[in-house]
């Protein structure tokens, strides 16, 4: 399997000198579906913001064989689809269509191509009927799915999701899990939802205090209760 993302020895500190990442390294191969777990403040969101260069610390991020630099940021952003935790941040346009079209329009794609991509992205998240709705009036679950469509329309190679199932009712959560299972794309998903991890992701990365505490088969990690407790996690 080809390597699509590699992160090597990533360090990052915020303005208050709090070290959020203290040497993070891992790789993703094509088709991997990987969970990223760990307590609040472990550095998960900070790490995700590094993957398409919103934040930039010391160390290397390589996407599709290309090392991320200031100059190739726009190209990297086309390859990594980053979905933020709060869908209200992700959806800043008046209608669903406008928002899903933002990425392709920004890339300067021709109009027909934009339309095709928007249709395909909405279909992939099963929201085709919502094309002309106001984002403002959607439910949280609907907003979450539209948020995923806003990056799918950019045809990314890797989908990076921050807490996709947080705040969803059981039915919306179930729909989302089914959606993630069926999306044929490499994904890295940060979450506290350990049952979803168990159900969906063969591989898990555990982060704590800016470091990777474990990276391996989900089954093994979830079976070690002492280890989970030590890192503020719970056995599902």
């Amino acid at each position: 399997m080809t390597n699509v993302l590699s992160v090597r020895d990533l360090h990052f500190s915020y303005h208050d000198h709090h070290a959020a990442l203290r040497g993070v390294s891992f790789e993703l191969c094509e088709g991997d579906k990987v969970a990223l777990v760990g307590p609040n403040g472990a550095g998960k969101s900070t790490l995700m913001l590094h993957l398409n260069g919103i934040l930039r610390g010391q160390g290397d991020v390589t996407v599709g064989g290309v090392r991320l630099t200031r100059d190739n940021l726009p190209a990297i952003r086309a390859m990594i689809g980053l979905v933020f935790q709060n869908p209200d941040d992700q959806l800043f346009s008046p209608t669903v269509f406008d928002d899903v079209a933002f990425g392709p329009l920004h890339m300067g794609l021709p109009k027909e191509e934009v339309l095709t991509r928007v249709e395909a992205a909405l279909q992939a998240v099963m929201m085709s009927a919502y094309r002309d709705r106001m984002s403002h009036h959607l439910s949280v679950g609907e907003k979450k799915r539209i948020a995923i469509a806003t990056v799918l329309s950019m045809n990314p190679q890797i989908l990076v999701l921050d807490e996709p199932s947080a705040g969803l009712d059981p039915r919306a959560r179930r729909t989302l899990i089914n959606l993630l299972r069926e999306l044929p794309i490499t994904m890295l998903v940060s979450t506290h939802d350990m049952r979803m991890v168990q159900e969906l992701f063969p591989r898990t990365i555990v982060m704590d205090e800016g470091l990777i505490a474990a990276d391996g088969e989900t089954k093994e990690i979830l079976s070690d209760e002492g280890f989970l407790n030590e890192h503020g996690l719970e056995k599902p």
Binding site: N52, A75, L82, D89, G108, L109
Partner: peptide, 20 residues
């Protein structure tokens, strides 16, 4: 957070003039 979400999707692909 809004600006960051916009930035994350402000991408470019080879062969097209990005940015609108």
């Amino acid at each position: 957070r809004l600006l960051r979400a916009r930035e994350a999707r402000s991408a470019a692909v080879a062969g097209f003039r990005a940015g609108g």
